[in-house]
Design a protein around this nucleic acid. Structure first.
Lengths: 311, 311
DNA sequence: TTGCTTGATACCGTCGCAGCATGGACGTCA
DNA sequence: TGACGTCCATGCTGCGACGGTATCAAGCAA
């Protein structure tokens, strides 16, 4: 046979009361079965835990040591149950969060702050990957939630817009366009060398660049994979590039960010003024309670960032 | 109702096998009651721990978290049982060890070393007290084992000789007796001022001094309580004193230790050559398993010290 | 379709546990 | 000193919980 938690609870009661009658009362039972449980426990443990004659009950050294461990035992159990409930409710656990190196600027920071405040028992593990890598990670179960750019395979992924921001042109500080007034249109870049993006690994910005320049006569000369690379090449005098407004936060020296005329013809529900979208993505059907919790916070975080920008 | 350890064990088995049939086999039971136990556990915990359809079983996030805690739980229980057994056998626990400041020199060190090696799970708490204080401590349960000088109240205390050593005379380096040859007898101290001990608080050395000097004509001029004090007074030129041979280890400068002629008429079973006895004492009837273990080591330790001295 | 696997359910027998009554040892009080 | 009270242990009994057998239902394979 084996030691039972009931026996442990009985022992704790008796050890604290040092009196079988009162202990039985506390356990809402009668004294005889309590005596038997203690006897059985002592037999299982293989040590005399209580020294008792007909007059008094005292803990043996072994009993005192065992009592300490019993406290730890019941505490551990209570915590285990509470923890399981919290995890089930999404209030605790581990969140594997994917994000893109530059694109999440201005979103990831506030989100992590909010997570730390609102879900302190959730451990966040960050995975910096490009959009494609995040999609693979989600499919393999390595990532629970990603922050990435469309488009996604909506048959296996669910998504939600987290942030929209304007598209900007980056030009070197000594470039003629740097001193222009007002928003720039596609025609302003006629004949200007443009740093473009890789059509597959940076598909989103590639298409956005192409869409902006449609019907124009500029020359797309490079195919970088990251926004940061594009900005650095601009600073090096290699041409101009189109980047999300938040790229200004990268702090690259020697470049200026210029507004653009609104981009038409994007997704039907996109805002022309802020066409660059960041989405939260997760495995369709794997909307765990924790993901639900986190998505609420993602929305709140995006809202707060929006409000701050609106001021 | 309440969570049972059996349910926990069932859950661990299923969570590890991810298969009710195999888990049941491992638990030496059939599958239906196992299913019921898991259901009941989930009801008790208040969270779904296993996601199962008719084809496969997977842990939920809550289940994975709970599993970790379950491991801790059973480990804690096993350790608690093992610990209780060790304590009962005297292999672990806490030992309150009393000793006298100077008298235990040469005994306490080796004993503590041996305890640390042989009973590493026994925590030793030292209590430096004079013999009387140790006796009180034992009576109050504050001390388990004392290292003290006779006589004791043998109706409540058991004792065992731990060490015997010669009595020596301490004299200042520039004292006439310092350069004498051979053992000194009582007559050598005729007319010499002798530092004596307090008749009640240092009864043992008081009586030993008086017994040695019986029929002599020396003057006992002080009544110190500790051996160390006596040696220091000797160094200060206040006279000579009688101390255990191990007092040489105190390292007081400016004194020399001189052998004495054998002391007759001590206890019937005492050795005249080594009349100063150190006893281990404990509460009669409170010979716990741990005390038994420790007493063995005390004997071994004394034996080793004796052997070392004999070389 | 049949057959196999696997978890859930129904039903039943048995074992264990709790409760009741009592015993036995010890202290207390008149 | 004997009657009484206290307190833990033990014997006995009834019930409830648990495990086993049989079966079902769902999904996959050939």
């Amino acid at each position: 046979m084996d030691v039972t938690l009931d026996q442990v609870r009985c022992f704790v009661a008796v050890a604290e009361e040092l009196h079988f009658g009162r202990a039985a009362e506390r356990l809402k039972m009668t004294q005889p079965p309590l005596s038997r449980q203690i006897q059985k426990l002592e037999r299982m443990v293989g040590a005399q835990l209580l020294d008792r004659d007909n007059r008094r009950v005292v803990l043996t050294a072994a009993g005192a040591a065992f009592l300490e461990d019993c406290y730890r035992l019941v505490t551990t159990l209570d915590e285990a149950v509470a923890h399981a409930r919290r995890v089930e409710g999404g209030w605790a656990g581990t969140l594997h969060l994917g994000f893109t190196a530059v694109s999440a600027i201005g979103v990831l920071g506030p989100l992590l702050g909010l997570l730390g405040r609102e879900l302190p028992s959730v451990e966040v593990i960050l995975h910096e990957r490009v959009t494609g890598g995040q999609v693979d990670g989600i499919r393999r179960g390595e990532i629970d939630l990603g922050l990435a750019r469309p488009p996604f395979d909506t048959s296996v992924l669910s998504s939600r817009v987290v942030a929209r921001e304007p598209l900007r042109a980056v030009v070197a500080r000594d470039h003629p366009l740097a001193s222009s007034r007002g928003p720039l249109g596609p025609e302003d870049f006629d004949g200007v060398p443009v740093i473009g993006y890789h059509p597959t690994t940076a598909r989103y910005f590639h298409e956005m660049t192409v869409r902006f320049l449609v019907n124009g006569h500029s020359r797309i000369e490079q195919h970088v994979q990251q926004v940061l690379t594009a900005v650095i090449l601009v600073a090096a005098g290699q041409g101009v590039a189109f980047v999300p407004a938040s790229a200004a936060a990268l702090g690259v020296e020697g470049v200026v960010f210029k507004p653009l005329t609104d981009l038409g013809g994007g997704h039907p529900d996109s805002e022309p003024a802020r066409p660059v979208e960041l989405h939260a993505i997760w495995s369709r059907g794997a909307l765990t309670p924790m993901l639900r919790q986190v998505l609420h916070l993602v929305q709140r975080s995006a809202q707060e960032v929006d409000d701050a920008l609106g001021e």
